[in-house]
Amino acid sequence: MAIFPPTKRVWWNEPVEKSEVLWIFIALIWALVMFFMMPYWHINGSQNLSNEAYRIRPEVFAKRTEEMAAKYKVGEEGDTGVPVVRPPAGSDVYMLGRLWEWWPVLELEKGQSYRLHLSSMDWMHGFSLQPENINLEIHPGYDMVLTVTPTSSGEFSVVCNEFCGIGHHTMVGKIHVVDK
């Protein structure tokens, strides 16, 4: 009984029953398969996060974002006139999160790659691209860089999914993906 000391004083020498040994073996193999899937996907998969990130002051990140927005602005969206920005393919693209918006709206081309920079101006935010369901944790003071290649076109939303205060549920941004 598991609530009493082992019946035999020397329990560590007792033989293990064969179905238990078999299960240990199967479980270990499965655990190894699951481990190797992660490095395998880094080599052969197309969805991996980069290891590229920089410490950055929020005001510096904001300045870079504003410069990009001023340079490539093609329109406005929403009541407050958030700029819609269409940067060239392959370029550095910035999106910042702050209480409670994602800024600016991006317009990307399907099939093209962009170096996307993400950072927060204040608290933690969650970058949740819908309906793709790509989710990233956005920190203030860190510039997270990843190369994204949209493989579908249409209107995508960036929902905030890290709780960021009373306006959290109003924090939505947009990314448009257009066919070439």
Binding site: G78, S128, V159, G173
Partner: peptide, 21 residues
């Protein structure tokens, strides 16, 4: 969650939001 619904979120209809998903 598989359909993208965020956790810790009061209103997934975004009634008070400027932009809506």
């Amino acid at each position: 969650g598989t359909l993208g619904v965020p956790r810790r979120h009061w209103d997934i209809s975004f009634a008070d939001a400027m932009m809506v998903h």
